[in-house]
Design a protein around this nucleic acid. Structure first.
Lengths: 143, 143
DNA sequence: TTCGGTGCAAAAGATTTGCATATGT
DNA sequence: ACATATGCAAATCTTTTGCACCGAA
């Protein structure tokens, strides 16, 4: 099995929280990491279903929430209102192509700084943020 | 009745689209404008219910979508995934206080510019965006 | 008189929960 | 043994739709 590091991180989390290590959790985490993120619960359920038809979607949804708790995944919600999960990694924001659905990531120190200034002005403390640009990617744009 | 300008804008839209002017639409628009925006369909339905218990929530939801079509309102979705509607006005983004739920607006030319640069780099055309800062407002922050 | 509108109830889609059963620890 | 996890079905929650009836044009 690949992704030993993440599997071990999950194992550690489970152990330290008196939760149980199960085949399902291992399989679901594996499939999630393999797919590379930005998946809905349904997406992941369908993927897993092919190989493990006996795993219920309830378990997939519950596992995804567990991964978030464990710091392995992050929950996002783009404009369609459906929850998507991605692999937790360095902070970044998204560009979403509304034509093909592809999702790109970006980060900008200038923007982060400007945000802070906007917030400071009204005495607001930023805990997290969300920044999404919707439009057409290079492939889909009309030239 | 207040908000004559918006009521007239709606009337114009209805007329030009062969749609009908109804008491419900007038009442719902009035309540929406009066409340000042950032409301969910349910919020608005509850507000209207007090005075007009015979207006169904279906009509409220349908009217809100109509207002968006007519350019009078905008649909937003914050982190809870529920659709909220606000009065359409100059472009801006939001600061959302996760303690008291209050919503503030901001705009930043620096950020808009930086967005454009990020998009240009990968040949992406931005059609719209969404930028939300979550945290604690001046009243709720722990000093 | 003719369409579009309304309101109810029912459907739908995504996610959560209750519960009996199964399974790590 | 005991407590948590699973999987099914049923419940939720928000939003949409079907349909008979109503009302604006």
């Amino acid at each position: 099995m690949a992704h030993e590091i993440e599997q071990k991180a999950l194992a550690r989390y489970l152990e330290s929280h008196t939760l149980k290590q199960t085949k399902q959790r291992e399989v679901i985490l594996e499939a999630f990491l393999e797919a590379g993120g930005h998946l809905t619960g349904e997406d992941l359920y369908q993927l897993i279903r092919e190989q493990y038809p006996r795993i219920g979607y309830t378990t997939v949804y519950r596992s995804l929430k567990l991964f978030v708790e464990a710091g392995l995944a992050e929950e996002r919600r783009f404009d369609d209102g459906v929850a998507r999960y991605e692999i937790e990694h360095k902070h970044h924001d998204h560009l979403v192509c509304t034509a093909c659905g592809k999702i790109f990531e970006f980060e900008s120190a200038v923007i982060e700084q400007a945000q802070k200034e906007v917030a400071d002005e009204i005495g607001f403390t930023i805990l997290r943020h969300r920044h999404e640009l919707y439009g057409h990617c290079a492939n889909c744009r009309v030239n």
